[in-house]
Amino acid sequence: MRKLAITKLNDLFAAIAESEKLYIPVDGKTGANYELWAEGKTLSDALNTVRSPKDFFFPQTEDMMAFKTEGKKIEIIDTREECEDFVIFGVRACDVRSFAVLDNVFLSDPVDSYYKNRRDHGLIMSMACTRPAETCFCKTFGIDAADPEGDIVCWRVQGFLYMDAKTEKGAALLDKLASITEEADSDVIAEEKALIRARMEKLPLASLTTDAFGPGKTDTFFDSPEWKSLSESCLGCGTCTFVCPTCQCYDIRDFKTNNGVIRYRCWDSCMYSEFTKMSAGQPRLTQVERFRQRFMHKLVYYPERYNGLYSCVGCGRCLAKCPIQMNIAKVMKTLGGKAND
């Protein structure tokens, strides 16, 4: 384990940025977001970013290829660029887990080469959560905010940043930073972890469990009458899916230019009326079915497909951002029966 005084954080950022692009959460007009570090940019104190770091690997829009026409000739242009190495600093435990959720989808056969390109080049420096928010419920999904996953895990304790490498990639970076960091004793971190875990126990959603959900529960919940009242005031806006670190649906579109076409993909949302539109229309006719899809996917379909892993990480973004304040925690409480009373 290595450490560095918080007052020297800027030196750490400068040292990393020497060889790689570094992104850190920076306070903006309306909350924190990841920005490319440059001299003068300081780390936000916010618990988490407004937009999730999934943008780094699965951006909201990206060009896939272009077609250029000249007379009867069509030229296909590969618009991909090889990604450079980059480091994302300060990723919270919930968001680090979201990468595993996305990996299952994008890195299994057929591999999504656009996603993989970025994933291969990204290094994650995660950060333990000393002050979780009331909307946090990562623990529900077996995520430990005191000890996040990632290439390098960081803790901010007593004026120091502690760093522990969890992967080879992480160890290599910590080695490079050896001259500005010092060897640290891990006792402080053990205490910090205990403190964080005690705090997690006190959160309002601490007792929420997934007991009622998971693989094989499709029939149990698919026809629940509660979907109707739960989705009653849903606007179908898709805010919940766009702020969600694990939502992975996209659409592929053509953008016509003067002498060709740019083929791009953009996020899509199961909350939308045109989602997965086929020749016969959208299979989910009303907002009730669309709403059900989102939560069944997170709590039943995904775990069924991927060894029991849930595709909600309890980050709380949808709790904070839904215009009508409906969210996965309310759904779990309503449908989860006794387990979630």
Binding site: L205, L319, K330
Partner: peptide, 12 residues
Amino acid sequence: RGEFAYDVTPAV
């Protein structure tokens, strides 16, 4: 009423 003071949902 919701989980917190502020997460009030329109309902019938």
